[in-house]
Design a protein around this nucleic acid. Structure first.
Length: 426
RNA sequence: GGAGAAGUACCCAAGUGGCUGAAGGGGCUCCCCUGCUAAGGGAGUAGGUCGCGCAAGCGGCGCGAGGGUUCGAAUCCCUCCUUCUCCGCCA
């Protein structure tokens, strides 16, 4: 959510930034109308309320003294009636204004390259070399199925498309990666571990920006106003919703494991094979809460923590700075980390690291104080995948494959795989 | 799922229609006393948010949330949420 005061006072800047994003400016005009109306109504009702309070106090006095207060009571009665009408009008205007504010996207940071779509994203750096195969490399869904690590047929029988059974060493590998990632982030990068609820309520989904605009992307529980989490970002960021944090607590760094559930509405036909685009997948997510002046530093560090995992796994990747047109709704700046996938002969997103600045904090009302008696300020929130586990499994299978169809296990994972060095068919 | 109880400021807690921005205590801050500590005496302290204003300030809201009754609600009514206890069920 954008700051209403900022919108009011710097409309030109907001318009310019909306244009950069390719965003419709029409709503901003509606904002001005509603905002103006709201303030005028507030002034009117408050004046009446003040009058009512004064007279009510007088009535009390009269009664105590045994005087007749009928005339005063008559007056407040009238004032109260008028007040209620205005109050109702105000409530409606505020609701509309709030709804409108919830649909406005974040403003891009100045270091974000301008562009229309993913082709305008800027490559920041690359790491490692894509492997060269002397034979025809296989896709992870073929190898995974052959090695009985993955079973896509039975999962579609049991559930439907875009679900998978991990089996045998496939399940073990998935679990090894979760543990390895969580361990590194906890012991080396200083994140406090969290395993959140996998369902959240509507307020939480609104707090991080999934709602109200993107309801069709999520899975809704039928009898409860709950949603399956699309990412641990939602429960973990909302952990501190409506809180005022102490400045000594900052920065808060959490690494969270969760399953993630996405309806993938609108992606029909894309990435239909393999682990890349599932309705359910596991992810280790890094979430941080920081003082505003530290958030861009944190974005770099967060991104590097995700990169560390790929480096230790020896998986080639590149880091992209998302352009204004590809930023998404909530981010002020976003890096995607893309891992090399031989089956795609291309890089594929495996982590997305974003600085939301105060956009989520304002929605979720997450604040802090620098001093006990000081003013409250909104924190900045950030998060990044560290990493998406299913896609990591896919990348390992494909990049570590050998001509005989076996998979070498990355060295750092071997202790998590019972000391095995290779996955091969038996 | 059934029965019951409760939600008041940093914490505990009083308060069933007007003088309650909210008793009392704890805590916290300052002062006094005291060789130090403990104990004691005195004074002070109350969150957040919105509107107007350059500001000082003024005003609105506020006692789990949202509605309602009333001239006036922490106090009465309705709905919801959360916590606790007992019973049932269950990984």
């Amino acid at each position: 959510m954008l700051d209403a005061k900022y919108l009011r006072e710097h409309m030109d800047d907001v318009v310019a930034k909306f244009n950069k994003r390719g965003e419709n400016v029409e709503e901003l005009k509606n904002f001005e109308t509603l905002d103006h109306k709201r303030r005028s109504l507030i002034q009117q009702t408050e004046e009446l309320k003040q009058r009512r309070n004064e007279v009510s106090k007088q009535v009390a006095e009269y009664k105590r003294e045994g005087k007749n207060a009928d005339e005063l009571i008559q007056e407040t009665k009238e004032v109260s009636t008028k007040m209620k009408t205005l109050d109702e009008e105000l409530r409606e205007v505020e609701q509309n204004l709030q709804q409108l504010l919830l649909t406005l996207p974040n403003l891009p940071h100045e270091s974000v390259p301008q562009g229309e779509d993913e082709s305008d994203n800027e490559e920041v750096r690359t790491w490692g070399e894509p492997p060269i195969f002397s034979y025809e490399a296989k896709a992870h869904w073929e190898l995974g199925t052959e090695l009985q690590m993955l079973d896509f047929e039975r999962s579609s029988k049991v559930t439907g498309s875009r679900f998978v059974f991990y089996k045998g060493l496939g399940a073990r590998l998935e679990r090894a990666l979760i543990n390895y990632m969580m361990d590194v982030h906890e012991s080396e990068h200083g994140y406090e571990e969290v395993i959140p609820p996998f369902m959240v309520n509507r307020e939480s989904m609104t707090g991080t920006g999934q709602l109200p605009k993107f309801e069709e992307d999520s899975f809704k529980i039928r009898e409860e106003d709950y949603f399956l989490v699309p990412t641990a970002e939602v429960p973990v960021t909302n952990m501190h919703r409506d809180e005022i944090l102490n400045v000594d607590e900052l920065p808060i760094k959490n690494s969270a494991f969760s399953a993630c559930f996405r309806s993938e509405a609108g992606s029909a036909g894309r990435d239909t094979r393999g682990l890349i685009r599932q309705h359910q997948f596991n992810k280790v997510e890094l979430v941080t809460f920081v003082k505003p002046e530290e958030s861009y530093e944190m974005l770099e560090s967060l991104t590097s923590h995700a990169e560390t995992i790929l480096q230790r796994l020896q998986l080639p990747y590149r880091v992209m700075n998302m352009c204004t047109g590809d930023l998404g709704f909530t981010a002020a700046k976003k890096y995607d980390i893309e891992v090399w996938l031989p089956s795609y002969n291309d890089f594929k997103e495996i982590s997305s690291c974003s600085n939301f600045e105060a956009f989520q904090a304002r929605r979720a009302n997450i604040r802090f104080k620098r001093e006990a008696k000081g003013k409250t300020e909104f924190v900045h929130t950030l998060n990044g995948s560290g990493l998406a586990v299913g896609r990591t499994v896919a990348a390992i299978i494909e990049n570590y494959q050998q001509e005989d169809g076996s998979i070498v296990i990355p060295e750092v994972l071997r202790p998590y795989m019972g000391g095995r060095t290779v996955i091969e068919s038996t």
